Computed example of a mutant assay.
Amino acid sequence: MASTAAIAAKLKKKHVRVKHQKVKLFRANEPLLSVFMWGVNHSINELVHINIPVMLMPDDFRAHSKVRVDNHLFNKENLPSHFKVKEYCPIVFRNLRERFGIDDHEFRESLTRSQPVSVETPGRSAARFFITSDKMYILKTLTSEEVEQMHALLKQYHPVRLVREMLVREVSSLNYRKYDLKGSTVDREASTKELEKDLPTFKDNDFVKDGTKVHIGEPAKQSLMETLTADVEFLTRLHLMDYSLLLGIHDITRGNTETQPDPAGMSGDSEEEDVEIYAIESHESAPQPEVYFMALIDVLTHYGVKKQAAKAAKTVKYGSSADGISTVEPDQYGRRFLDFMNQAIV
């Protein structure tokens, strides 16, 4: 029978391998993005086990999920060891993704396979914008007021189909001009700083000065204007204004011979990818062959006390030109926006 000393000696020679929990890493160059990627992955994985009800209930539009992580297994270079993630109305947004034909697995891959890349945007907004590595989605940080506004309008938005966001992957990689159009004229031209960019965002006065038109023909124009009108009427009912039509115009002729600079530092589009593109081709009678990408953006601005005060200040400043300022009542804003689009689309 082996002695106690002999057994102890054998145990000392034996190498014990400790099995550590496998943790998916979300490497990003700042904690905000790492936590965001972790949160999206966690949320999608949790929702896999939940059946989406046929009819959403009022509580679904007020619900949120919150998870707090205190995990020493995370390498601080990849993720903070202590953080919290809160998701608003997870069932509602899962339902919206289904309605728009967005597969949860593909959605998660777009947002978490590689870190989103920061992109510069025009305007005075303090919001930060990011584009996913596959260029399928743009991410925008929201203020607490904007989150509250989104929460308030979500129940009304859910049964309505707004104009789909343009496919950012295509717009950011093709040869195109980009316009942010509100239908107003005061201070609505690209700044000198904006014009220094490789891909500047032009505005209403630039659009008019360039003599630009969206050449899609009468049947397509009628269909598009019906959609835009329905969307504007919906936003007006919610007392929202200050939204824009983001328009990307791809010149097919130039696109065949040139490569447009990529602001996110990524390569162009691949013809092998089977991706649905939300775009309208120019009519055969157009001066040149083009493809138009469009989306309504910045739809969360409520016409409240701040905007009313801004309107009063601008009215005093610009006097008779006040009708052209962007800050006006939602009804007037919507009518002016649609009038401008009706002139811009031929």
Rank of each mutant, 00 (worst) to 15 (best):
W38K: 09
M55F: 14
H42S: 14
V18H: 02
H42T: 10
E46M: 15
V48R: 08
R27T: 07
L32C: 03
V18K: 02
S34H: 01
V35A: 06
M55G: 06
F26L: 14
M37N: 04
K24C: 08
K19E: 01
L25E: 07
V23I: 13
Q21M: 12
P31K: 02
K22Y: 07
E46G: 13
P31F: 01
V23F: 14
N41C: 15
E30T: 05
V54N: 06
I50Q: 04
I52Q: 10
N41L: 14
Q21G: 12
H49S: 13
H20C: 10
H42I: 15
V40Y: 02
K19P: 03
E46S: 15
S43M: 15
P53R: 10
S43P: 00
L47W: 00
P31L: 06
S34A: 02
K22H: 11
L33Q: 07
N51S: 01
V35N: 03
V40C: 09
N45C: 14
M55T: 09
V54P: 07
F36M: 05
V35E: 00
W38Y: 13
F26H: 09
H49C: 13
R27I: 12
V48S: 11
M55E: 05
L33I: 11
K19M: 03
F26E: 02
L33N: 07
W38P: 01
M37A: 14
V18E: 01
N51L: 01
W38S: 06
E30Y: 09
N29P: 00
K24F: 14
K24G: 05
L32M: 02
Q21D: 06
S43F: 14
